[in-house]
């Protein structure tokens, strides 16, 4: 799940300086599931903005609407009426949301209310951990199903490093050493031999350093 955390209110409020009517657009998929940008949170942000603007004597309305996914044209089209009435749109989606809104509504001011942080696994209620950085070429078949790119602080392919102490990473005692986990897991599976295999250099050409990636599928097209 993509997780995003809401920016500090003051930062959001400053972005809206000078704007009259505001529209807070929630996103009811990833950021709703990760409890920060769904319909409820969009409503709270709108309420908070109304209170702050009233206190500061700023006019203009603050409305709110939530779509199922801000990363799809059709859903963004469905709120065109509300968007047209607003002077500025505030998105509580991951950064795809506001960019999608910009693409769909090129003349409209759009600002993000969120800092997008990761693709996470829900360890427990209210706790997410990064398990994937979308490097474009998955190698976890060789690492016991544990990704060293996402979970090792140094992105090592041949860990652990000297900073691994008692199974923890030197960056924080709260962070487990991914390579220790890989080793323990392969040992448990009786597959430590896997670590002796010589692998070629990891393909990085599908990662994010080569400009924006596009995925296209073949097959039926409408």
């Amino acid at each position: 799940m993509i997780t995003a955390e809401r920016k500090k209110f003051e930062e959001i409020r400053r972005m809206t300086d000078g704007a009259g009517n505001l529209l807070v657009v929630g996103c009811n998929t990833c950021v709703a599931v990760s409890l920060t940008g769904g319909e409820k949170e969009a409503g709270l942000l709108a309420s908070q903005l109304r209170l702050a603007r009233r206190k500061d004597g700023i006019g203009g309305s603050v409305e709110t609407v939530t779509v199922l996914r801000q990363c799809e044209n059709e859903y963004l089209d469905s709120i065109s009426e509300q968007v047209e009435k607003a002077d500025m749109v505030i998105s509580t989606a991951c950064s795809i949301g506001p960019q999608g809104l910009v693409f769909r509504y090129p003349t409209k001011a759009v600002v993000p209310a969120m800092n997008t942080n990761m693709m996470g696994y829900v360890k427990e209620h209210h706790v997410w951990t990064e398990y994937c950085v979308a490097c474009g070429f998955c190698i976890i078949a060789f690492t016991g199903g544990i990704c060293p790119i996402a979970r090792c602080a140094k992105t090592l392919l041949n860990g652990p490093c000297g900073g691994s102490q008692g199974g923890r990473c030197e960056i924080s005692p709260d962070v487990p050493c991914a390579w220790q986990e890989i080793y323990d897991r392969l040992a448990a599976l009786g597959q430590l031999d896997t670590l002796k295999r010589i692998l070629g250099p990891k393909k990085w050409n599908a990662s994010s350093s080569g400009g924006p990636r596009t995925m296209r599928l073949e097959g039926f097209k409408p």
Binding site: K8, F9, L44, S47, Q48, L51, A52, D56
Partner: peptide
């Protein structure tokens, strides 16, 4: 917290 952020 929300009120404080809004200056109330």
């Amino acid at each position: 917290t929300a009120l404080e952020e809004a200056g109330i």
